[in-house]
């Protein structure tokens, strides 16, 4: 009888758990060196970050946010990058086809902090905002690295021209 009760509560608990992970957020390991020095500053230890799903539910992300997104090249892979420009911004690129890009409607420009060692918008161009899955808010592991991830953009990577409002195209 106790066993049956246990099975029942597990079956009921799974949907609740999944819903929590889908709506609030989850913890994920960061692989690779593309976000150095913000994440994985030391190659020998990997950081674990809390990815907040709640933060992107209305897709109101900001320049400088660290986000996780589905790779536009390979849909089964997730990548973690920093948002450099939003729709309507004009950004200077680092080795993309065009030197200067105006980001099309509904897209954003993402880059890894580790310039030159990152597969980002400089390779595949602007990405659709619909691919964003979550925003990285905290480093949770290892404990000595516990901190909040700041929304910041290096001065040299700011967009050349910032769109006047978020609704640049929807006027």
């Amino acid at each position: 009888m106790a066993f049956r009760k246990f099975v029942k509560s597990v079956l009921l608990g799974i949907p609740i758990g999944i819903t929590f992970l889908d709506c609030v957020g989850y913890v994920a390991r960061v692989d690779g060196i593309s976000m150095q020095p913000a994440l994985n500053p030391d190659a020998s230890q990997t950081d674990y970050v809390f990815l907040s799903r709640w933060a992107v539910r209305t897709s109101n992300v900001d320049r400088g946010d660290i986000v996780s997104l589905i790779s536009p090249k390979d849909p089964s892979q997730k990548i973690i990058k920093r948002i450099v420009g939003l729709q309507g911004d004009v950004v200077s690129t680092l080795g993309y086809r065009h030197e200067i890009v105006r980001i099309p409607e509904g897209h954003c420009w993402v880059e890894g902090d580790h310039t030159g060692h990152s597969l980002d918008s400089n390779t595949f161009g602007p990405v659709a905002q619909g691919l964003l899955t979550a925003r990285a808010t905290y480093i949770v592991w290892p404990p000595e690295r516990w901190r909040r991830l700041q929304t910041e953009l290096p001065r040299r990577r700011r967009p050349i021209q910032i769109a006047k409002s978020a609704s640049y195209y929807s006027q």
Binding site: T58, S59, P75, S76, P104, E105, G106, H107, A128, Q129, G130, L132, Y169, S170
Partner: peptide, 19 residues
């Protein structure tokens, strides 16, 4: 499984407006 087939009708997020 990300295994698209020609002719399928799909629902997708609009690339021009994520909402």
């Amino acid at each position: 499984f990300h295994n698209p087939r020609r002719g399928d009708i799909i629902i997708a997020i609009s690339p021009t407006d994520p909402k």
